[in-house]
Amino acid sequence: MQSYWFGDLDGEGCHPFVGSPADQAARLESIDTDMAAYIPVAWEDAVRCGYAKNREDYLQKLRNLCFFIAEAKIADHFTSRDIELVQMVRMLDELDDVINLLTERAVEWYRTKNPSFSRKYRSLTGRRVIQVMKKERDRAFAEIIADIEKLQESRTRLMRDVTALADTVIPNCSALIGGLVAARLVSRAGSLEELSRLPGSSIQVLGAQSALFSHMRTGSPSPKHGIIFQHRRVHNADRDVRGRVARVLAAKLGIAARIDYFRQEIDQDFLRASQEAVDRAGEGT
């Protein structure tokens, strides 16, 4: 017997399947085709079945089903919350880039208006230098500075949202390295599902791809850490134990991602044990 999307064919003839697109899709999912005995559809059979009137009608009905399935799959994909988290954290990183770029350019412009201006010996970080430049009276310049300020506000708000969402979507990862860095890991892996399938060693160097490939190609030292360097226990660790901290943390993150993906709840026992293991790794020899 051959099972096709429109029904079953066997020695006795054709048994068309009647049902809504959802029923059809569910049935298609349940068909277990044996590829060794498989024969592709002859569309004429669907006509003989009384399922379609002609070739055109056959294709239209098939297309309807395929559209239904694809739309359902896409909707399903985009409703998983980690996908939105990924877009949010990418937007956040993009905002950082844009704000820095605009600020730098504005400073260059500001210097031509105020030749004596210099950032030396005054700790003028991005935010503070904007406050200084705000006093400029040039209309176009002032407007741009106001826009940069507005972007900074959006960034702050978005960061709060990212952290909050990460705490609910990936609670275990967030507890280990903080919501923002955890969200960046998910973003780099593509999705929580993909992150949960990665081994600890890959998580350790996520975000250090260029260093990893140059290591593989030319044998330069392997990278010790990628995105997880942003976590304080990694970048604050002494140089000689930093690699070890990164490795232990990454291994625990691999487990945390799996708990987040498959169980979707916080596991206090696991977290306690993991935090201790990471702290121990940082204590030195």
């Binding site: 592709p40 559809v41 896409i74």
Partner: peptide
């Protein structure tokens, strides 16, 4: 899907090409 909506001779199949057994019931020679 947007392209296929306007072109009636495209059958859009959302599936993994490395698992043809999933979309085999949809395909003709």
């Amino acid at each position: 899907l947007a392209v296929a909506a306007k072109r009636k001779n495209i059958v859009p199949i959302m599936a993994d090409a490395s698992r043809p057994e999933w979309y085999a019931p949809l395909l003709e020679p």
